[in-house]
Write a protein that binds this DNA or RNA. Structure first.
Length: 318
DNA sequence: AATAGTACCAACCGCCTTCTA
DNA sequence: CTAGAAGGCGGTTGGTACTAT
């Protein structure tokens, strides 16, 4: 037979989370780590469905989340990736480690869709390169049944490569940092990158990365650091730079997740590599495949600039 | 100052895939 | 191998904040 039920629907609370609930959830995850959501409501006493707990954590409480103030680079990246992947927000979010899929989805629906509509109305004859990928792959991708898109992605790999290469080269004019796929891809075996700084082993790693959690929920959990062996140091280093509930002031630079100190980068990205979006592990092979094809193809075609750029920035991140 | 309209976003819903007994 | 639950994801909605009149 199957598993036992995760939680009965009786007495399950809905609606906005209270700070108290957040504290309970974060405290529990601090001690046990994310995952096994089924046990969270029973172990914490939260009158919430396991799904709700997971959603609250992944979309709001987990460390390293940047909210609001999407940069132009992020805009472009989302637009290109949406054209490339369709409404696969989780996949798109894997390229924007500080953003949640929900956040990107909301931003797309509230901002970028309109922006694109306005642009397409004003310049239909423009952006043949965009239009080709957007009109074909986007509309198709959204209609393709789940599970089929990866096959399509492989069969249409040339189209995808072209679109992504275009996106990379377009934005390379202004900056290149955001183009770097999430550093977590560097830890996936098929990718040849040798991580310079590997995440600490899971136990220490959890302690370190939860320091970032402390920053995100500092207002909710004043004693957070006390429970996290290494958190006091890291928190003092970076506290105030990650603003969870309140949007950051307009960024002086537009370098996305590079817009922070080295320690922040390593910690934040390390976290993402291992914990913040564990579900991405399942998706990354496809994306890594695409990336690898891009890099390989770029090399084959003599696009060393693109390839080097990707590799160099990957190294630079560490 | 009050009201209506709009924008934004956190959270829910339901479907699909994966996993487990 | 199969049934059924957990996990994951995308679409949608409801509440709140903001803006215009």
């Amino acid at each position: 037979m199957g598993r036992p039920p995760c939680c009965d629907k009786i007495g399950v609370k809905k609606g906005p989370w209270t700070p108290e609930e957040d504290i309970i959830l974060v405290s529990y995850i601090q001690q046990n780590g994310p995952g096994n959501w089924r046990s969270v409501p029973t172990n914490t006493g939260l009158m919430r469905c396991s799904k709700s707990c997971r959603l609250r954590w992944t979309n709001y409480l987990r460390p390293g989340i940047k909210r609001g103030n999407f940069t132009d680079q992020e805009d472009n990246m989302i637009i290109h990736l949406q054209a490339l992947l369709g409404n696969r927000w989780a996949a798109i979010a894997s390229y924007l480690p500080q953003r949640t899929d929900n956040d990107i989805k909301n931003y797309w629906n509230t901002h970028l869709k309109k922006k694109l509509n306005n642009n397409s109305n004003q310049e239909n004859h423009h952006h043949h390169h965009h239009g080709a990928s957007t009109s074909s792959s986007s509309s198709e991708a959204t209609t393709i049944a789940k599970g089929q898109w990866e096959r399509k992605l492989q069969t249409d790999i040339h189209m995808a490569k072209q679109a992504l290469t275009e996106a990379l080269s377009l934005d390379n004019k202004s900056t290149t940092s955001w183009q770097q796929p999430p550093p977590k891809t560097t830890t996936i075996p098929p990718i040849q990158h040798q991580p310079v700084v590997l995440p600490p082993p899971p136990v220490n790693f959890t302690a370190t990365t939860y320091a970032l959690s402390a920053e995100n929920i500092a207002r909710l959990l004043p004693n957070w650091q006390k429970n996290s062996p290494k958190s006091s140091q890291t928190s003092s280093e970076s506290i105030g730079t990650l603003n969870h509930r309140f949007p950051s002031p307009p960024a002086s630079d537009h370098h996305g997740f590079k817009n922070c100190s080295n320690s922040e980068v390593s910690e934040t990205t390390s976290f993402f590599q291992d914990e913040s979006k564990p579900e991405m592990e399942a998706q990354m092979p496809s994306l890594s495949f695409l990336e690898k094809c891009l890099v390989d193809d770029a090399a084959a075609q003599g696009h060393e600039g693109l390839m080097n750029m990707c590799l160099e920035e990957s190294d630079a991140l560490f």
